[in-house]
Design a protein around this nucleic acid. Sequence first.
RNA 1: GGCGCUAUCGUCUAGGGGACUAGGACGGGGCCCUCUCAAGGCCCAAACACGGGUUCGAAUCCCGUUAGCGCUACCA
Length: 495
Amino acid sequence: MGEGASPSTLKPIPMPPPPRVRFAPSPTGYLHVGGARTALFNWLYARHSGGQLVLRIEDTDRERSTEAHTRVILDGLSWLGITWDEGPLFQGEYGPRHQADAERLLAEGKAYRCFCTREELEAQRASAGNAGGSFRYDRRCYRIPAEEAAARAAAGVPSTIRFLLRDEELAWDDAVHGRISFQGRDLDDFVILRSDDTAIYNLAVVSDDIAMRITHVIRGDDHISNTPKQIALYRALGHQPPVFAHVPMILGPDGKKLSKRHGATAVGDYQEQGILPTAMRNFLALLGWSPGGDREILPEADMIELFTLEGIQKKAAVFDATKLEWMNGQYLSTLPAQELVAPVRRQLERMGISADGDLAPLIDAVKARSRTILHVAGQVAVRLDPSRPPLDPKGEALIRKMGPAFSTNLQRAADALDGVEPAGWTPERLLDLLKRVAEQHGLKLGDAMQPIRVALTGSTVSEPVNELLAVVGRERSIRRIREVAHRWNGGGPPA
RNA sequence: GGCGCUAUCGUCUAGGGGACUAGGACGGGGCCCUCUCAAGGCCCAAACACGGGUUCGAAUCCCGUUAGCGCUACCA
């Protein structure tokens, strides 16, 4: 600090309190990628700004909420590496506060009792709503004198509490959309407390966000139309609304909201499919958010450092599973094989294969050519037991194309391989040997190599053949090569 | 129907009045490398929804149209 400013003359810079954000899923289903991304954005914002993330389970829909779903959601978040600073808190435990807030609004004349039954409401809707659905509650119960309403309630007549919505501008500066404005007259007096004294979503959320001192509400776009109601509630309750940031939806390939009929939509599905959590997180982060440049692969630290709410896209994004797989492949190829051993072993076990040896060299041999852990495990399984793979169409084509040479060349290779000492079974020595075999018999290198590849993998695609041999091992390789040579002796086309 | 949101290659996006002959990535096509494939490198095709303004100048600002989506419950 220069320019003669002495510390004593400096006004203390008011430090804004660290942000508090929350992720508030309702445990009525699995953790969907949309929810996961909302959670991710909240997490990134909290980490970026030195704030805190509160996890709140909105389980007030008793009918549909289950503990199993809560478990799945928590597991999904953990899998993605999303950690929270408080919670999980359960909204269902705050019923008394919700009710107290509703009654306070009632006492202050900012809400009123409504004795209309569901059936009556239905009838009103049917007659007023000219088939369209432009129904707005006509406030008939607001006209009931307070004493009478209280008496009826005391007598046990069921009633809800409705919020008295004033006709005023309900607007806010959305962190992603800019200014959004609604008019009170376009909304109606919504119910805040059910006849069983439990809160309706909008009240519960506002009541909880106030109590938990949430400063930034980062949530899905589909909540934009709830926001004016919530702002009205904040005002009525005497609190400053938080900053709202509405993130766009995630669509399926057909441009419709992503749903089960698009296939995998739960993060658990991708876990199943062998996607790495880091890749999933990276992909999700870039779906609807951009750091501003050309970056694609973003390590966690960079993601956190670069994240801003302003960088969030306004437009909905289509979930592109192909790009996810590409990204997974990127992570796969840079990840040390050692870190893949556990997930690959798990997958092998699911396939009914018990592998006791060191899997790392096998994983190293195949991971560059794989896009998911499932692919890796499949290829490892083939190398563990070369008699396993069925012939693929390309392998079959090669056999047909080479005719009798296929078997002959295999035989020659096997004979030469037989002479290799176990200690000499290394990629380098094997390459030398194969080259010599080809030379001796006047073969192109490929004509010596490809049959081996097909014999050991059933396919024309693999790591370099010498490495393949090394990884499969001496005994297994030779036995399999002889088997296959014998099988195709005579060179007939595959049946 | 009402209210609201959105609109750049097929997809994810960069872009915030001149740097745009609109950049990158996935996917597609081609070439190189090579025993095959993948990776990698190089190259190609591919977009500012439409119409009006504002401005010397608009992908960028304003208005309208169209289209898509969201909400419109005693669900969340």
